[in-house]
Structure formats: structure tokens, C-alpha cells
Design a protein around this nucleic acid. Sequence first.
DNA 1: GTGAAAGCGCTAACAG
DNA 2: CTGTTAGCGCTTTCAC
Lengths: 334, 334
Amino acid sequence: MNDVAATAGVALKTVSRVVNDEPGVNAATAARVRQAIELLGYRRNDGARVLRRGRTASIGLVIEDVADPFYSGLSRAVEDIALRNGCLVLSGSSGEDPQRERELVLAFCARRVDGLVIVPAGSDHAYLTPELNAGIRAVFADRPTGPGLDVDTVLCDNIGGARTGVAHLIAHGHRRIGYLGDSAAIFTAGERLQGYREALEDADLPYDESLVTMGPPEHDRLHADLQALLALQDPPTALFTGNGRTTVATLRALATLSPGFAGDQIALVGFDDFELADLLTPAITVIAQDPARLGRTAAELLFRRLAGESGPAERVQIPTRLIPRGSGELPPRG
Amino acid sequence: MNDVAATAGVALKTVSRVVNDEPGVNAATAARVRQAIELLGYRRNDGARVLRRGRTASIGLVIEDVADPFYSGLSRAVEDIALRNGCLVLSGSSGEDPQRERELVLAFCARRVDGLVIVPAGSDHAYLTPELNAGIRAVFADRPTGPGLDVDTVLCDNIGGARTGVAHLIAHGHRRIGYLGDSAAIFTAGERLQGYREALEDADLPYDESLVTMGPPEHDRLHADLQALLALQDPPTALFTGNGRTTVATLRALATLSPGFAGDQIALVGFDDFELADLLTPAITVIAQDPARLGRTAAELLFRRLAGESGPAERVQIPTRLIPRGSGELPPRG
DNA sequence: GTGAAAGCGCTAACAG
DNA sequence: CTGTTAGCGCTTTCAC
């Protein structure tokens, strides 16, 4: 900027004014400055600008895994809102590792992001307290923080959604319904199990632990659990899967199990919609949430806070929607 | 940092030494400083650090759309490599808009990222020249830059992959093969069309323009084009689709066309693998590329450059792989 | 071992 | 309309 000023024969501050489109610069002077800028290939150093002004015009986004379609949809929405607010986004995947989540968040804070959108992997966020006190705003998305922290949170209706899905199966005559969920440590997995239990209760059906399995959404684990489930004396006639990854892994496991257990024999409702669910045979009935809306809502809430909105921490709930496609309407068999 | 120094009763520089784990600080002093840091909830301001040191330890990633599974896979790989190199990543989706690509790239440069991984939307990157001269390193991924710029580039084998896929259909007896590609302006779409043509040539089959349609991978467009294709006097018995989104949209369009044209009647090979391709009926034969490997390769190349590796711009090609699953092995019908 | 001074590139607050 | 001065929070250089 010094060089530009020298080249244009003006003071530093005038260059600053031109660069920032501040009013009060003679058109001729401005033109001369612009010429010098062009000539020297000058670009403002936003890092220095930030240092001086206080706000970095950037936010941090920590999710579980960008490669998961659910989170990539959420990411895109956050990005769009950020861009619309003139903000850049630093993003990182925690891979469900609380330690890595912490490192990412703290690294973002050290860069003095204005705010954070966090899909927490862990449940202890005490490490955030000093950052929040330092004025960094945070919004939790998809999962809440553990106790002790009072921050804005955007969740979907996990319990209600699961309850609706399981009730749908019950309405179609099923009495033995398996629940295949993600690892029990994950908030949403627990909530959805809760919804499953409530639906059973509503219908005066017993809760049978042997019909419930939780764990990472990996093929081998689901294959084994499914095999055990189907080998029960009184096997389930329907399945409820707890999230997109689990649904897909379950479908694949069903396909590799003996053909007699193929996907069109057992009813299935999955939590989360996913690409091509409608083109499978049978098409998969799902409880859809809207990851883009989740991301948008969280980001908008964050920017409202950054714009100065005060008040107690908000807790927003995004509704879910049952999409019947075939797999969830299959009658009990056996 | 001043406050910490005052609290600990030492000079500013000593705090700096402790914070950065520099040697030459008395253990007792260091402990006192750390206590003060704890007490005040102090965090180093990396922005200021960057300003002084020159390197920001961050890179920028510009892709077409994080919500597209292909790019989200690439993103995740870039993220992982960056994190391993102690770097944060600023990311943004261009949405296939050259203007937005430019804005994102320049915004990242203004933040003085050390390097960039770019999936270009446009073909004119003259705007990058000053940045490159200023020392920012860039690697192009998935698509090359236009002429005039000499930067590292990582591409997949578009021509070879398409050629293999179309040859596969020809080997299965098809003589009339439709090509459904993304918009002609997109580099990969053109390359893959080229591969399609070469495969026809290899087999001494004529190139028939009426079998080729290109445009955005949207349902309505593909529905219309497909309808026209199938209404031809001598309709194709097989289709080659130019990327993942197009394949999925084509499948959906086929499903909504009259049942007589259902997906199990016409052979299909798609460029790009996608989740659940193996569970459809028939399962979809694809030319798979490896988005994670593409991202990893690009990021590694970038970090090698940042580590000081010099030499002429590299051009790396990632191979593709034919995965026969059923849809590409259907015999001609009609 | 520790500290004082200078300055990274910019903008805020005034002065002319 | 334009310029001067101070300082954002840190690291670098050199002196103690």
C-alpha cells in the first residue's frame, strides 16, 4: 500500500480510501491510485485489515464428514449463507472424534473467526467457554452440546420422526420391528431409539432388546447383526434404520444375505432421505430431514447473533417428513 | 499478550516464547506465564502471527459444489492432507459460475492463503497471474486452466475412460449408442465426448450427431432429450452418460418414461461411480474415477510446492476403472 | 535467560 | 478532499 501511495504520489490513507470505496476522494486522484494499483498488481492484505478492524468476516464450520451427503448438503447451505453475508468459511471434518473436533474449533478460534457452526462429535464442550467469553458466537447443529453450555442449537425432530416412521410400520401390520441404529454414543441415535420406543408404547407393543442393535454403520457389523436378527426364533418383519449411512449399509447387507431375505421381503423405513432411494426395488420409504434447511437455519441464526441480536439461547427444531415409497408399506410376511 | 506479561510480571517477548514453545525460558518463569495464560483465558491471535510471519498456514479450495458427492469426496481428501500439514482450509462452491469462482479465489488470495486447489468453472484465469507472481501456489484439479497459465494440474483419464466404457458397450453388440453429457462448455464433458468418438472410430462405427445430447444434468432436460432419442427411427440400444449427476438424472428420466423403456431394456454405462449403483436393478456399470485420490494428489502436489519443490508445472493423470455390474452388459434389444 | 524496540499492512481518529 | 499519527497483536532483531 505504501508502494502504491508512492507511485501515485499520494498518502497511504488515500490509497486505503480508494481500496475500500470510501467516499471523499477526488475522482482524478482515485483514478491515479487505481492506475498505480493495476501497475503494481497490488491486492489488499485482508489479514492486516482484520487485525485492525477486529472482525475477520469468516466463520468456522465443523462437521462430522464432508463426504457424507447429509453433511455436504448442510455445508453447502452454510457456505451460501456465509457468502451472502460477505463471510468466508473455514471448514473441517471431525470424523466423529471429539479430540479432532476440539482441535479444529480451537484452531478456528485462534484465527479469530467471528462465529462457529458446530456439529459436535463429543459431548463435553467446556473447552469452548473461554472462547464464548471472548465473544466468539457458536451455533450447534444437528446435535446439542453437553450440559453446562448455553448456546443456540438447531436440531431436527429426531424423536418425532422416528416415532412417525415406526408408527407407519405398525400401521401396516408389523409387530416385530428391528431397530438398527448408529453408535449409542451419538446423540441422534439415542433420540431416534427413544422415538422407536415411544411408537411401540403408543401401540402397546413390548420393547424387545433383542430387536435393537447399535453401532457404526459399517457393512460387516450390519451384516452380522442382521443375520442374528433374522435367525431369531421370532424374527422381525420390518426394520427401522437410524440414519442414511445405516440404511444404505443395511440394504447392502440385505442384498448379500441369502436371497430369501432380499430387500423386498422385509419392510423397511429409514431415517434420512438419500439419493436414489426412489429408484431401488422396492423404493425406500424414509423419514426425510432437510440438511440444507438445517444448515441454513443454523447459519442464519449465527449471523443474526453476529448482527447483535441478543436474548437467551435459542433451540430450533426442524420438522421431518414421512415419504412413503414402497418399502415401508410392505405387509408382514412369514 | 500484554496482559499476560503484566500478570506474570515478565516481558511480552517471554510470553511469546512460552506460547510458541521456544527454547531458552526458565522452567519456573514458563510455569508462571502459563498460569497467567490460564487465568486470563488467553489465546494467541493467529491473524497477527500470520501478519508478522508471512505464511498463513491455510489453503483455499474452490470446487463446483460441495453437495455433489464427487466434489465432497475430493474435499474431504484435500482437508485431510491439509490438516496433516498443519493447514486450515477455506472452501467455497463456485456453482459452475466463473464469476463466483473468481471472487472466491481472489477473496482467498486477499486472505493470503499459502496455496489454492481449484476446480475451475471458467477457462480464463488471467486474473490469477498477479497472484501467482505474488507467490501463491495453485493446483488445478479435475479440469485444466485455459491457455496462458502454467500451473500444476491433476486430471483423470477422461478420454481413455469414456473410450473404454463405450468400447465395452460395442463389445456387447451395440451399434447405436447415445451420449448424454453435461454442458458442452465443461471441459470434462468435451473430453468424454471425444473418448466416445474415438471408441466409435476404433470400431468403424459412424458418429451420428442425433445420438448426442449435452446440457445441464437436470431431470427435465434429460427427460426431453431421452424421449427424442428413443423416438428416433433407429433409436439407440445403449446409452453412455457423461458424469454421475447425468447418470442419476438419466435413470430417473428412464423410470418416468413409459415402462416399455424402463432401465432394464436399454444398456447403460455411466462415467463416475456412485453410491447404490450396485443395488439398482439392473446394477449400473460404470467408469469409476477416484475423487479422493484426485483431491489427495492435488493437495500433496500443492504441499510439495509449498515445501519448495521447483521445476516445471506438472500434469498428473489419474486412471479410471471399468466396473461391470449388469447395465453395461445387456444385449441390444429391438 | 530475558527484555526493548521496530515493524508486518492496514484502518480509526483526527487534523489540515 | 487529503494527510498524519497511532496502534491492532504478534514476531524479529539485537542488546542486556
